[in-house]
């Protein structure tokens, strides 16, 4: 029996040691600043969420996870890059690699069932309809292409794109061209 207690103790300590990212020393001020920064720039996250999810529940779920990841990383944010650039990076990382998708909510794969998309509210406005069609086209891209498409639409420079994705500028250009060709085919089949 004592062996089990010992094992329990050891695993608990190890677990705490590994996951306990304590927020000691982080003041209320930092929290306030973070909340106001995020509120101001939340549109960026919404765009990423809408790119990587297909319905409202998943959108909110992903937004939440990105917020948690941003807050976790916030104390380390030194302002070396623009807040929006930094946000993109964390948001993409969360959407592509960190977020654990629940199957019923999200489908980010290239094989895509259009019917599922009806869960997003229908838009009456012509403008909203066009935006919706654009998102539907983006949904047909793979995870990396989605990021490229979003960065292109947001008018980011190749330098910034290459830094965000961690690939060379040349590679970013090649990939961007391919993504544009793919997007064109989807939009005008």
């Amino acid at each position: 029996m004592y062996r089990l207690y010992f094992l329990n103790f050891v695993t608990n300590r190890l677990f705490l040691l590994l996951i306990n990212k304590s927020t000691k020393g982080v003041t209320k001020d930092l929290e306030k600043k973070f909340v106001s920064d995020l509120e101001k720039h939340q549109n960026i996250i919404h765009k990423v969420c809408r790119t990587y999810t297909i319905n409202e529940a998943a959108h909110k779920d992903l937004f939440q996870e990105i917020t948690i990841q941003l807050w976790k990383a916030y104390p380390k944010f030194r302002g070396e890059s623009k807040f929006s650039t930094w946000m993109y990076r964390v948001a993409f990382n969360t959407a592509i690699s960190l977020y654990r998708k629940s199957k019923k909510n999200v489908d980010t794969g290239p094989i895509y069932d259009n019917l599922k998309e009806l869960e997003y509210q229908d838009y009456n406005d012509e403008k909203d309809k066009q935006i919706d069609m654009l998102y539907k086209a983006i949904h047909k891209l793979n995870d990396i292409e989605k990021a490229l498409a979003l960065l292109y639409l947001e008018d980011k420079s190749y330098k910034e794109i290459s830094k965000t994705l961690g690939i060379s500028e040349i590679n970013a250009r090649v990939k961007m061209n391919r993504t544009k060709i793919k997007l064109k085919k989807i939009l005008n089949p």
């Binding site: 509120e39 939340q42 917020t67 948690i68 990841q69 807050w71 960190l98 977020y99 509210q121």
Partner: peptide, 21 residues
């Protein structure tokens, strides 16, 4: 976005537990 979150909602969200991979 039509689901823009308020400061209070963001504050609540940031303290939730992560379910990251």
């Amino acid at each position: 976005c039509k689901y823009n979150f308020s400061k209070q909602e963001i504050f609540e969200m940031m303290h939730l537990k992560s379910s990251s991979a």
